[in-house]
Design a protein around this nucleic acid. Structure first.
Lengths: 134, 134
DNA sequence: CTGACTGCAAACGTTTTGCACGGTA
DNA sequence: TACCGTGCAAAACGTTTGCAGTCAG
């Protein structure tokens, strides 16, 4: 059981019903794009505005509470920030799954090849999920 | 030495000076976003339109001749399709480098964890390049 | 009570479309 | 010559901004 109110406060975000709902949806669904969020919240707040969604998502990103995930050939999705992980996208149904992978050897390989100071690693696999390949 | 005309024909794209210039720029620079391309081509074709850039980039993507690379916190860039590779992005100067990495073990790990049929692997590192870290 | 958030409408930047003209094959 | 590409202008989209009213702290 998750306390969304406390979570918001920890990130210095004022608690409003709209924000609680956004966090709740993301917590339940893992990843959603702006439109998914808007449609979902519309049923709870019939007069909510897209601007509110954008403002809140941006505020949450600013506080490093939310994270934007860019996906090849699809809209960006947003997720609650947590431990680093990779993503698996089904190009047929659009489903997105988290996957924990050990990317350390890849990182080492990259560092030894070019000498960048690497701060972030983004790995996204695209394919067909078990359900869709039936 | 690269023959851009032949290259375009191989991908069933009618050869026009504008298209040749787009391919030439991408061949020279590796990756460019729409605006980079537009500015570069403006000097060669003072009356070229952004619409032409968009139409051509989209046509080339359609023919799987160009590839869009989505980058965290930055505009998408386009590159000529070639062997699979990863990308290294400098968050300070925006430079993007190709890097050849062995992603096969990562892929195996992903397949054994979830049983997707994986078609594409996208790896993007973000960091600071040697020049910027001086 | 004060400042921040909401919802609306307008503004903005980016991408797409329709059309007349010109160029490629 | 027939069709496709170009450039222009307008339209369509997605996102941001300004503002008046409301709510959280």
């Amino acid at each position: 059981m998750m306390n969304y109110t406390t979570l918001l406060k920890e990130y210095d975000l004022k608690v409003t019903p709209q924000r609680v709902a956004i966090v709740e949806e993301l917590y339940m669904n893992g990843h959603m794009n702006i439109d998914d969020l808007y449609k979902k919240l519309l049923s709870k707040f019939p007069s909510i505005s897209l601007a509110t969604i954008y403002k809140n998502v941006n505020a949450m990103i600013e506080k490093v509470f939310l994270n934007e995930v860019k996906i090849p050939n699809a809209k960006s999705v947003y997720e609650l920030v947590k431990e680093e992980h990779s993503h698996l996208v089904c190009s047929s149904c659009g489903k997105i799954e988290d996957i924990e992978l050990d990317t350390s050897s890849l990182l080492k390989e990259a560092i030894s090849s070019k000498n960048y100071t690497i701060k972030e690693t983004s790995v996204v696999f695209t394919g067909i999920c078990p359900d869709c390949s039936k």
